[in-house]
């Protein structure tokens, strides 16, 4: 917009030179941006490139970006029962944590947003602050708690743990969103005789879909990434999530088979990258709405 405006007002020579300069600058900016983006993506590109090379080409000097020989062997070697189990575990835990954290977060956020009470702002501050709670410190007591409840080495331990460390963000995201929702619809429904619960479930939640999605994606990504709970709260392969499983099982066995390691890394990244690729816009809308306002 601004560009076309400047272009149309070409009156004085100084304007013209400014426009020219501007175009040259714009060209520079394209170069800079492209270069920066490429630098950012080099590690990922190198990971992809290596993952398709046979092991002996991996150590080639000088290194080649486009593999001489393309092999899918590195990927094929990864598809075994263990990786399948780990992936399934991670999926189950991440989906449950995303659902739990988002749903409970939505209830709390709605309460803080719609009820006027003195504790509200304090609660929000507490949630923000709790992001800085040292996770290992939390884990010590959680460990004892889970032992007592018999939850060690269950999905529940991981889901609860991941919910605990993500629910503050869910609440923040959703509260900001609810604050921006017009209340007229809710009030009208309420006056028509719907119970507050019905208003929340059938009117508010559907309207909040973008924010719910943003929260769910955030929790999913955190859960997919989380290492410490997975290492400590599970003790057998059939319960372990991906990061812990990879650390414990795969990294020891590779013995320097870098191309296979890169293939594994790609496989682990794919689910979150795909999810994120499709929902990025929704996610950004949800996140930036809160961030820019707050």
């Amino acid at each position: 917009m601004t560009q076309s405006l400047t272009m149309s007002r070409r009156a004085s020579p100084s304007r013209i030179s400014r426009t020219l300069r501007r175009r040259a600058n714009l060209g520079m900016i394209y170069v800079c941006v492209t270069a920066l983006v490429m630098v950012m993506l080099i590690p990922v590109g190198w990971m992809l490139s290596t993952s398709f090379k046979p092991l002996k080409d991996v150590f080639q000097i000088p290194p080649r970006w486009i593999p001489e020989v393309i092999t899918f062997q590195n990927y094929a070697a990864q598809f075994n029962e263990v990786l399948g189990t780990l992936t399934l575990n991670s999926l189950i835990v991440a989906v449950c944590a995303a659902a739990l954290s988002t749903f409970v977060g939505a209830m709390t956020a709605y309460g803080i947003s719609r009820f006027r009470f003195r504790g509200g702002p304090v609660l929000m501050l507490f949630f923000m602050g709790s992001l800085a709670f040292p996770v290992p410190l939390i884990m010590i007591s959680l460990y004892g708690l889970f032992v007592k409840l018999g939850l060690l080495n269950t999905y529940a331990a991981l889901v609860l743990g991941h919910t605990a460390i993500t629910i503050p963000v869910s609440i923040w995201l959703l509260k900001n969103f609810f604050d921006q929702l017009p209340r007229e619809v809710e009030e009208a429904a309420y006056v028509d005789g719907a119970t507050p619960l019905k208003v929340f479930v059938f009117i508010v939640l559907p309207m909040a879909r973008p924010a719910l999605a943003a929260s769910a994606i955030f929790v999913f990504v955190v859960s997919w990434n989380e290492l410490l709970f997975g290492l400590t709260f599970t003790s057998t392969t059939d319960m372990r999530p991906l990061p812990a499983g990879i650390t414990l099982i795969f990294l020891q066995e590779f013995e320097g088979a870098w191309s296979e390691m890169m293939a594994l890394a790609v496989i682990v990244s794919v689910p979150v990258l795909v999810l994120f690729f499709f929902f990025q816009k929704t996610f950004l809308r949800g996140v930036t709405a809160g961030a820019v306002k707050g």
Binding site: M40, P43, F59, L227, I246, L251, M262, V268, S269
Partner: peptide
Amino acid sequence: FFRAAVFQVWVVPWIVIAILWGWLFNDEW
């Protein structure tokens, strides 16, 4: 487009970064 390209990096799992960085910064290769 640029934003999406850069933003993908934000979800690369940490465990992947740990593996990948070991390879990028390997002293020989």
